[in-house]
Simulated assay, not measured.
Amino acid sequence: MNLNLIGKRALVTGSSAGLGEATARFLAAEGAGVVVHGRDARRTERVAREIREAGGTADVVVGDLADDDAAAGVARAATAGGPVDILVNNAGSYRHLTWAEATPDEWRDTYDANVVSGVRMIRHLVPAMRERGWGRVVTIGGGLASQPMDAHPQYNATLAARHNLAVSLARELKGTGVTSNVVSPGAILVEATKDFFTGIGPARGWGRTWDEVEPNAVQALIPNDQERFGKPEEVAAAVAYLCGDHAQYISGATIRVDGGLIRSAF
């Protein structure tokens, strides 16, 4: 399927690793010029360099989106090479905390990093999309938005906010040619996920190596129709589809990429 992304420019926030990196690589392979963003210059440059070595087009911007001035700088740098047609709001932070550990300051910091950061980029980049009559905003959410677990409540709540703001934005953008959607991953196998489940594996009797832990973790915590963890590239594929011409009639939607998650057993 030709997504017709050649000539489009995409900023993927938080794309120096994980789902953001996979999304930047996928969009570049589809012909989009990507802006790789991160807070660590070395890691961000590595992703962009590898995209270029694979034949894609990639620029680099570095900055902390939790800061107003730094976020404005990221937006200026991202548009220096041309207007941004696609905004993938992926950047965010995560700490595994209990209710007792999640202080009000932690809640505020997490909300700023995971919600307001995306709002900053929307405010900087979407007005120009509206003027041009074409644009895509894709927010990366998660299943914990609707099925929160008892741990890291500050993070669960920000996912719900991300889903909500994306739908509100879609209503705001009606009739403009700009769409706003959510891609909601389930348990995706990135290094942080692997480290988390391997860390709790021995205490739960799942084993110590990843080969031992994975099937037990899936069965106990994330039962799904595919009986496995997802791959970053599968999330990236959903994002890329929403960015293409074939998805013009999709707005205000949540696309689940979770293997058909049956329940949340956390």
Score class of each variant (00 low, 15 high):
residue 40 D to W: 14
residue 131 E to R: 12
residue 68 D to T: 11
residue 92 G to I: 08
residue 177 G to D: 04
residue 129 M to C: 08
residue 154 Q to F: 02
residue 146 S to P: 11
residue 95 R to W: 08
residue 109 D to R: 15
residue 75 A to N: 02
residue 110 T to V: 12
residue 113 A to D: 08
residue 98 T to F: 00
residue 91 A to Q: 03
residue 55 G to Q: 09
residue 92 G to C: 07
residue 103 T to F: 01
residue 94 Y to D: 08
residue 115 V to P: 05
residue 111 Y to A: 15
residue 59 D to L: 06
residue 77 A to G: 11
residue 101 E to Y: 02
residue 164 N to I: 02
residue 97 L to G: 03
residue 45 E to V: 15
residue 167 V to F: 01
residue 169 L to K: 03
residue 169 L to W: 05
residue 129 M to G: 04
residue 78 A to T: 06
residue 41 A to V: 13
residue 54 A to T: 09
residue 53 E to C: 10
residue 112 D to V: 07
residue 56 G to I: 10
residue 62 V to A: 03
residue 170 A to I: 11
residue 157 A to G: 13
residue 131 E to Q: 10
residue 98 T to G: 03
residue 108 R to W: 00
residue 51 I to N: 02
residue 111 Y to K: 12
residue 52 R to F: 10
residue 135 G to P: 14
residue 66 A to R: 11
residue 121 M to Q: 10
residue 156 N to S: 12
residue 101 E to T: 06
residue 57 T to N: 07
residue 63 G to F: 10
residue 103 T to A: 06
residue 109 D to M: 11
residue 53 E to K: 15
residue 51 I to S: 07
residue 155 Y to V: 14
residue 144 L to E: 09
residue 93 S to Q: 11
residue 101 E to G: 03
residue 128 A to R: 14
residue 78 A to Y: 02
residue 128 A to Y: 06
residue 105 D to N: 09
residue 82 G to V: 09
residue 77 A to S: 11
residue 175 G to H: 09
residue 155 Y to C: 05
residue 111 Y to L: 14
residue 111 Y to W: 09
residue 155 Y to L: 09
residue 167 V to L: 00
residue 87 L to T: 08
residue 145 A to S: 15
residue 135 G to V: 10
